[in-house]
Design a protein around this nucleic acid. Structure first.
Lengths: 228, 228
DNA sequence: CAAATATAATAGTATTACTATCATATATTA
DNA sequence: TAATATATGATAGTAATACTATTATATTTG
């Protein structure tokens, strides 16, 4: 990614953590290693005790940063969506043509993730894997409404809203801009998952990317022929 | 639903259970009450111990039917998809026009669930709520590939495949029939969830149903104008 | 009626998800 | 430089979870 990003910090709702993990060395190790561990063993098997052993620190010290592992997941996924949002805004900001702009936006949010050297303690490729496999668990809980009220999903909602607005800019009379925007984000995670585990349920594979599918889907819905 | 269904039994992969819950009174109570409890308290808080207390039975007896609660969830969701599949096949079987047929199929799989008197111990409305809130947890695990190999998702896959075929019948040159079919099923659950918890992320609400959105989405993708 | 089967009761285990307390190391400031 | 604040570590403890094992008691079936 661009060098300009080097000075950027993804800012996350302070209620998610007890102590900002970006503020200390231990905090950064918690983030760095939790990404590795959750992508390795899955969120269910991951515990603060295991994380402590791995980073040579104590369970109780980790609890001083996050109330529980659910909050840590909210932190990681918020960071991911914030990072995507930054790329989206950065890349589409100067674009004038709404069709090209939306196309670019879809490309950014549906493509396979590449490493970003701007954040050395975060492995974005593995974090993307975590988002694909675990994101829905962060909101499919009995506490969604309370968590939503506490603002734990603001970044994600803002991202959907931005895409929704881009959709409206292309076709103001389209009736489902928010539903289509949420379908792109959530559906993209799902297609990436299917191509890894249920190949018969998707047409995405080596040569066909989820991006191709969603660009086709969106512009057909908006009745815009892309090349003509 | 139709009286014909009265004699129908949804058949589920025998590897999912240790003893068929449809074969005994206790088994049926396990199914009946687990649906009530999981929809009330969520899958995370639900335990066999609590279920035992509620049905006046013993934890250990429930373990003779299901290895663990994950298997029970697989059972419940498989039953749900089998029930939906039955309705799909039953309702579209005699239809000749591929467009009308696909439209009917989308209606069936995306509509809000209504009670079905044919299965007295199963509350389909609450089961649908469980599928919306918990289904993804049944496959977003480290064991997906093994579970898939064991055939725990066959009914769901068959349902996606049926819809995919209907899509191909409408437009044989459409390039993403499987992705679109999986988007309809998974996306429908998601839109129903959003309308209950994240209203700003969807255009579905009282007057606009997910069905309306998906019919528009699908037929635009297939370049078929519905009325003309 | 005997034998098989289903269910219930009880107990026990390792692990999880914490909370609490106290000790020690390091950094800040008076 | 000493006093103090802050961060981290070590240890212990608790209630609940997710089981397994064993034994007892009903109930069904041959």
């Amino acid at each position: 990614m661009d060098r300009l990003l080097q000075s950027v910090k993804i800012s996350i709702n302070e209620k998610i953590f007890l102590k900002d993990p970006q503020s200390s060395d231990l905090g950064k190790r918690i983030i760095q290693e939790s990404i590795l561990m959750i992508s390795e063993m899955g969120f269910e098997s991951f515990t603060f005790r295991k994380l402590g052993m791995r980073i040579g620190s104590n369970e109780s010290s980790i609890y001083r940063y996050f109330e529980n592992k659910h909050k840590l997941l909210l932190y990681l996924t918020s960071w991911y969506w914030g990072w995507l949002e930054y790329q989206l805004v950065f890349s589409t900001n100067s674009m004038a043509d709404p069709v090209e702009k939306l196309k670019k936006a879809i490309e950014i949010v549906t493509r396979a993730t590449e490493e970003d050297s701007a954040f050395s303690h975060i492995n974005e490729v593995l974090l993307n894997k975590i988002v694909i496999n675990e994101y829905s668990k962060s909101y499919l809980t009995k506490e969604v409404d309370a968590d939503n009220k506490d603002g734990y999903f603001v970044i994600y909602k803002r991202l959907v809203s931005r895409i929704s607005q881009m959709i409206q800019a292309v076709n103001p009379s389209y009736r489902y801009p928010s539903s289509l925007a949420s379908t792109i984000l959530e559906g993209s995670l799902h297609q990436h998952f299917l191509k890894d585990h249920f190949t018969s349920l998707t047409n995405c594979h080596g040569n066909v990317a989820p991006t191709d599918y969603f660009i086709d889907l969106v512009f057909n819905s908006l009745n815009k022929d892309l090349n003509g």
